[in-house]
Computed example of a mutant assay.
Amino acid sequence: MKKIRLIIPYFGKLPKFFPYFLLTAKRNQKIDFLIYTDQNIDQFEILNAENIEFKTLSFDDLRKKVQSKFDFEISLKTPYKLCDYKVAYGFIFEEELKGYDYWGFCDTDVLLGDIYQFLEEHSFFENDYSRYGLLGHLQIFKNSQEVNHIFMSGQGLNYRLDFHNIFTSEQNFIFDEADGIQKIFEKNNFKQLQDKFFDDIDISHFSFREYGENEPKRYYFWSEENGLESINLIDGNIKVNRPL
């Protein structure tokens, strides 16, 4: 079995839905989660999740940790700017990732299906992909020197792909998504598993529908036995699946 660890820094008041994210993370027993936060974590001891590790530290301490990895002065004034640093977590947290085959990051406003099963079903390990994912809510990378330093290879391509420009600017470049790290991976011809394997729910509606849908076409439910599942209406046919 491959070892995977997801790195999640979260600073400031935790959202009300955070416990639900943790429940879905706990069910991913083959995935380890490392969560950095400045909030009280005692309340989550009742979860008793062996695959979730919390580390308490201030945002300033995390900034110092990130700064220690670079020989120029970085810009990291707010937690939101961490979006641009996500693709460098393999480099920044290399000590915390020793012994792991893959690393990644994910947001906390998501409900997770069975990540490991999904990767196996799509031959992620068998085909030796270097990366899964396109958007910032969930990505997984091969834990290798080449992949962990790939974010540095955009220098000289254009301003938005040069990590030095990105890490010294207060502006958010969305470096973790399609117009950032994706272009660098493509330029280096790294194998990637990429397709839409998630539902992006429009929270402005009470009923479950994705952005751009005029009517609900799915229903979600949770059970201790199977975790998160959905019933989908696809081309007039009903399909039950477990979302990623």
Results as ranks from 00 to 15, higher is better:
159 Y>L: 00
4 I>H: 02
138 L>N: 13
104 G>Y: 04
183 K>D: 12
170 E>K: 11
119 L>W: 02
118 F>E: 02
222 W>M: 05
146 E>M: 06
225 E>V: 10
34 L>Q: 09
147 V>H: 12
42 D>I: 04
155 Q>A: 08
223 S>Y: 04
67 Q>Y: 06
203 I>F: 03
181 I>Y: 04
237 N>C: 07
197 F>C: 03
162 D>K: 01
85 Y>E: 01
154 G>T: 00
176 D>A: 14
147 V>K: 08
110 V>S: 13
151 F>K: 01
82 L>D: 11
44 F>S: 00
39 Q>G: 13
217 K>R: 09
23 L>P: 03
225 E>A: 13
190 F>N: 11
130 S>A: 15
11 F>P: 04
3 K>H: 12
14 L>K: 10
14 L>T: 14
95 E>P: 06
28 N>F: 06
213 E>F: 02
91 F>Q: 02
227 G>Q: 12
24 T>L: 00
29 Q>F: 06
17 F>S: 14
104 G>M: 03
240 V>Y: 08
96 E>C: 03
121 E>H: 06
6 L>D: 04
237 N>Y: 09
187 K>C: 03
227 G>Y: 10
141 F>N: 11
138 L>F: 09
121 E>M: 09
49 A>F: 09
195 D>F: 15
116 Y>Q: 04
124 F>R: 01
171 Q>K: 13
75 S>Q: 11
120 E>L: 08
41 I>N: 05
51 N>R: 05
48 N>G: 09
108 T>N: 11
12 G>I: 05
43 Q>K: 14
61 D>V: 04
142 K>E: 14
54 F>L: 00
162 D>E: 07
179 D>S: 11
71 D>I: 05
130 S>G: 15
235 D>V: 00
179 D>C: 02
47 L>S: 07
180 G>D: 12
89 Y>V: 06
46 I>N: 15
3 K>S: 14
239 K>Q: 12
81 K>N: 07
124 F>S: 02
231 I>L: 13
29 Q>K: 14
202 D>F: 02
74 I>K: 06
172 N>G: 12
226 N>D: 13
177 E>I: 08
171 Q>L: 03
76 L>E: 12
85 Y>G: 00
234 I>R: 15
224 E>K: 09
36 Y>L: 14
81 K>F: 01
73 E>K: 14
71 D>N: 15
13 K>Q: 12
1 M>D: 13
56 T>P: 00
21 F>K: 03
95 E>S: 13
175 F>A: 08
117 Q>V: 00
32 D>H: 13
120 E>W: 01
144 S>D: 15
110 V>D: 10
188 N>R: 08
149 H>K: 11
215 E>A: 07
120 E>G: 01
98 K>F: 00
89 Y>M: 04
72 F>P: 06
62 L>H: 10
197 F>K: 05
17 F>M: 06
68 S>M: 02
102 Y>N: 03
182 Q>C: 07
145 Q>Y: 10
185 F>I: 06
